[in-house]
Design a protein around this nucleic acid. Structure first.
Lengths: 220, 220
DNA sequence: ATTTTTTATTTGGTATGCCAAATTTATTGA
DNA sequence: TCAATAAATTTGGCATACCAAATAAAAAAT
């Protein structure tokens, strides 16, 4: 019995969803392979199988696209992932930058009603600890309106509500400089030269690069 | 990358532990295969590999035995399993008979400090919802306090954990009526007249004498 | 002491999910 | 246009974890 066959497929779908969501560009085999850190041959084969199952479509230009069915499945996994992250942070006192890889395992657990019970137990949270919205049981996402800190108005209180990038490196960096989802900052200056941003946070000034500021999404 | 390679081994160890614990008889390849519902060839191969890793020993008479190392690993899995069961019942309001197969998946999640945090979050429970003790982080099991079935509370699930009398006659009698260590019963009635006890066991009622009930030690 | 039955073991095979290396097929830049 | 580069695809392989069926060995029963 191969209990865990679905893990792999779920990872493909989830990654595909994330890439499409970021809409950096068309998602092709190479892009997906890189995102999954797998060999292109492996990914090609998997895409073929998912295509047979009508989870993805391969367009004429080789772009790999989730079908509605695939997207729905992907959103269910995203939903589980984010709910488990809330659990780990709120209930097990993990720090928000420690939970990703644990949630990657928990998201694949299958059980009747588990997700719904977990959600209720957590008090029906709408966002995960990184500020990303939690899809509902039908896979619907409430879009949160945000703007990158890099283009936010000066001298206005802004709450960090989400991240444009949840890489380990970025999370660790934020931790180091004391920023996190929920923190309130105020833009004081944007340097003409390199567009680095100086913000006031808890009465002290912090200067961050434009790249960092672009990945801090704040309230509109 | 084969993230889940350990699942299988963990299942072998856990099952082996359970069989040894029940001490029904010597655990051989057939017994283990049956318990795991796997083909003997599959199990034989797995046992060979675990033997190479010094997790099990195969005795001259083909009995498969956990080494100390193997037992410690097995107890860690049992520990995780039971803690997750507590979580599912206490926090997610599952019923005690619904949680086993969910815990079977959760028990394989690997993460630094997860088990300890979960334990603390649950309030350091000492038994799972089936009344089975939860091993501590070193794999030590606390002896369970027991009570004779004759004086146990009504309508509560009780696991038979020990016998007050191990005479051949008593064992044979238990065998005949289908009771054994590990079996779960629920006291329905204690007859005023002769203190005989009627218990529910696997959906059917059994009436046993007071003397028998006094020799069946159940979870407190 | 044989036969029967049970258990252990071997052999050959399957499916999944992965990879490296070779090849074909675009794409693109000069 | 045409060589260089990049992407897609094919091929052959590997490891894990399983199985069925054949055979060997051991145990039990007659």
């Amino acid at each position: 019995m191969q209990h865990f066959a679905h893990h792999s497929e779920e990872n493909y779908l989830k990654t595909l969803y994330k890439l499409e969501d970021k809409q950096v560009k068309k998602v092709n085999n190479i892009a997906l392979s890189k995102a999954l850190e797998l060999n292109p041959a492996t990914v090609l084969e998997a895409v073929r199988k998912m295509s047979e199952k009508k989870l993805v479509t391969v367009l004429a230009d080789k772009t790999i696209q989730l079908t509605d069915k695939g997207k729905k499945k992907a959103l269910q996994i995203v939903r589980r992932h984010r709910l488990w992250e809330v659990f780990l942070v709120d209930k097990l006192t993990y720090k928000w930058d420690e939970v990703h890889h644990i949630a990657e395992q928990l998201e694949h657990i299958e059980a009747d009603g588990l997700t719904e019970r977990l959600e209720a137990f957590l008090g029906n949270p709408t966002v995960d600890p990184h500020g990303d919205p939690i899809p509902d049981e039908n896979g619907k996402l409430k879009k949160i309106k945000t703007q990158p800190l890099a283009v936010a108005p000066l001298n206005k209180k802004l709450t960090i509500v989400a991240l444009g990038n949840s890489s380990d490196e970025f999370l660790k960096y934020l931790n180091k400089i004391g920023l996190a989802i929920g923190e309130v900052v105020e833009v004081r200056e944007v340097e003409d030269f390199d567009k680095s941003v100086t913000v006031l946070h808890k009465k002290s000034a912090i200067t961050i690069s434009n790249e960092a500021a672009n990945n801090l999404l704040v309230t509109l």
